[in-house]
Amino acid sequence: MKGYHLGELEELVLLIVGILDQEAYGVSVAEEIKSQTGRKVNISAIHTVLNRLEEKGFVRSHMGGATEERGGRRKRLFSLSASGRTAINEVKMMRNRLYDQLPPLALDFTNG
């Protein structure tokens, strides 16, 4: 399990970066989280998470895509790295494994 530990927000952001594919940067990630989950996340928190993910090697980034709204400034575009995808898989698999071990619902009285 070394290196694949992800926090809750980290996991969410990592997934969104994967979903947005080549278009993931601060604002678009925040927007996507909002539209997909209804959660409002502060832009500065997203920046922090993205930076941390990059440090861990789960995402890669490059500068590009200046628009007028940004006053001509470029975006830092993030994309999922191989280890990032592995991490997502790992997390998902672990979750499934754990889920499968859940006892049946209480309505099932077989276990008394």
Binding site: Y25, G26, V27, I43, H47, M63, A66, T67, E69, R70, G71, R73, R74, K75, R76
Partner: peptide, 14 residues
């Protein structure tokens, strides 16, 4: 700076 300021500007105009 570029990244942060750009995002802040973008959100501002949104």
């Amino acid at each position: 700076l570029e990244q942060i300021q750009g995002d802040a500007y973008e959100i501002f105009y949104l």
